[in-house]
């Protein structure tokens, strides 16, 4: 195997990993802080893609401005959903099943609303100007847009680290993930924190949708495709573990990339196998110290 191929395949893995992480980070954040398993997170990714399409392709807004606008809009939708519905089932017996059901209802409803608004035809978003080409290294190309995505992914990780570790809202969120009740007793408005975290997480999912739209097909049902893979990443990294999700995404991305290159017939099975192995030997996630057994 020549080195350039290994390199280009590794960059491919990183591209896969970054988009996976951008979706999975929101999922793991909601789980970590709110203990909510948001099965509909992929649907927020999908409406993010549609909002990006609407802003950028239909109304002609600058791509990066569309990205930010999408984040705001999807975040607002997410907060509304949390405020109107999810909030009502917190603390119920058998909450887990109710969460899955409620968020599954979100999937059904959002999919149909998207179909009503945008129809079923495939939509497509062009790459932003300046990011259409590729760098050439020897015989290999690395598309600039993929590098942009990887860069944004790193920026998101650093920003999230800063917020979680160094700012008051971040500390509150981390504290709430450890013990909601005590944080409430200390005078923090826990329901509001939950709504904001949900909004932030769905905004990240939505922005991931816009970022992915120039590389993928914008279509109803696009949310279902990403949710299972993101879930794998979240579980491998440890549910609620932000860094774990990042490392988990890189692991899955690279395994997929080299799986495709060297064992293409079985490539789609690898991520599930990793998941099963991790769940058997270290169910709390590869990158979490806490024990759950």
């Amino acid at each position: 195997m020549d080195a350039t191929f290994i390199f280009s395949q590794a960059v491919s893995g990183l591209t896969i990993a970054t988009l996976l992480f951008l979706v999975a980070s929101g999922l793991t954040l909601i789980f970590g802080v709110g203990k909510v398993f948001n099965f509909a997170h992929g649907s927020f990714y999908m409406i993010g893609a549609y909002f990006g399409y609407q802003f950028s392709a239909v109304w002609g807004t600058n791509f990066f401005l569309s990205l930010i606008l999408t984040g705001i809009c999807v975040g607002l939708v997410g907060m509304l959903m949390e405020f109107l519905f999810l909030r009502r089932i917190y603390g119920r017996a058998n909450e887990g099943g109710f969460q899955i059901l409620m968020t599954y209802c979100f999937i059904l409803i959002i999919d149909d609303l998207v179909k009503l608004i945008w129809g079923t035809e495939y939509k497509s978003l062009a790459r932003p100007p300046g990011f259409q080409g590729a760098f050439q290294i020897g015989d290999t190309f690395i598309p600039t847009y993929n590098l942009l995505i990887i860069g944004i992914g790193f920026a998101a990780v650093i920003l999230a680290w800063y917020i979680l570790a160094r700012t008051r809202p971040g500390r509150v969120a981390r504290a709430a993930s450890v013990d909601r009740e005590i944080v409430g007793v200390l005078g923090v408005n826990v329901p509001l924190t939950m709504t904001l975290v949900f909004g932030l997480a769905t905004a990240m999912g939505g922005m991931a949708g816009t970022l992915a739209a120039p590389l993928r097909t914008v279509t109803p049902g696009a949310g279902i495709e990403v949710i299972i893979d993101s879930l794998i990443v979240v579980v491998i990294g440890g549910m609620g573990n932000f860094w774990g999700a990042w490392l988990g995404a890189i692991l899955i991305g690279e395994v997929t990339a080299f799986g495709v290159a060297f064992a293409p017939k079985w490539a789609t099975l690898f991520s599930f196998m990793i998941l099963v192995i991790v769940l058997i030997f270290k169910p709390e996630g590869l990158f979490t110290r806490r024990k759950v057994m």
Binding site: G96, L231, M239, L275, L279, P283, V292
Partner: peptide, 12 residues
Amino acid sequence: VGGVYFTMLTLA
């Protein structure tokens, strides 16, 4: 494993 990990493992 218990709780949500049980759910995830069975799903996996």
